[in-house]
Amino acid sequence: MSSHALDQPKVAPVRRGPGPMARAIDTTLGRGLIQIAAVAIVLACWQAAVDAGWLTEFLVGAPLGIWRMFHAQLASGDLAIDTWTTLVEAILGFVIGTVAGSAIGLGLWYSTFVARVVEPFIVAINSVPKIALAPIVILWFGTGLVSKVALAVSLTALVALIAAYGAARDADPDLQALLASMGATKNRIFRSVIVPSTLPAIIGLFRINIGFALVGAVVGEFISSQRGLGHMIYTASSLYDLDSVWVGLFVLMAVGFVLYHLIDLVERRILPWRQVSTAGQVQV
């Protein structure tokens, strides 16, 4: 009988928490060192593969070349100007698109009727791949800053609108009822329930939209521009200057990374109630 596994009571294997070794490594410093080591290994392998002739430097670039190019562009000041250009486009697009989109999305909470009327239009417009609008946007808004901002707005606004409306609709009806029983007006309920309860979703949206805004700016620059990281990447790749392409990509990555963490800072400021405790998290 004992051979029947099913007869045995099912007992989950007890997993122990991290051992002393793991605990020593699992610190900010420990994790950072591991992350840096991982990057260093990848770069070293890449450089070695190029040096050994397994990879064609002409097509993939090489870390040392990228580093030299980075310095050259930094020294000439081109990199700073290009980065600044893209950053301004993306941030303007992000702010305008996200603020306008979320405001309209939250505003739709006021009227289910209006929300139902406009819903199919929003879904339809949102299902157009916005990148496909890029050529028209350039036609309408020229080759300068405005067209890139417009493109970033087109990528971020509807996402914001849909997410904000969804979050507003999901806001706890009981909290709203409670305020109503206290005699609160609709505006009051909006301010005291809808806005605070949608903030986490809206901050989450910021993270997504930072990425979309950068896409808008860079694609706009690909199509027509005088400056910007997208412009730099595009022209460099048409000249097979792969090292410059990588410089542009890495800087874009760094820009996205910094913006993402800025949002973390913002989140910690305006959502203190969300990080009361991570200590209660179950260790498995």
């Binding site: 009981d174 409670l178 206290m182 005699g183 309860s197 903030l199």
Partner: peptide, 19 residues
């Protein structure tokens, strides 16, 4: 009796974002 009742709902409906 909107505004004149003290309504305590079935769950302890505290606002999570308020102290």
């Amino acid at each position: 009796l909107r505004g004149r009742v003290g309504y305590m709902m079935q769950k302890d409906l505290l606002f999570p974002w308020r102290t």
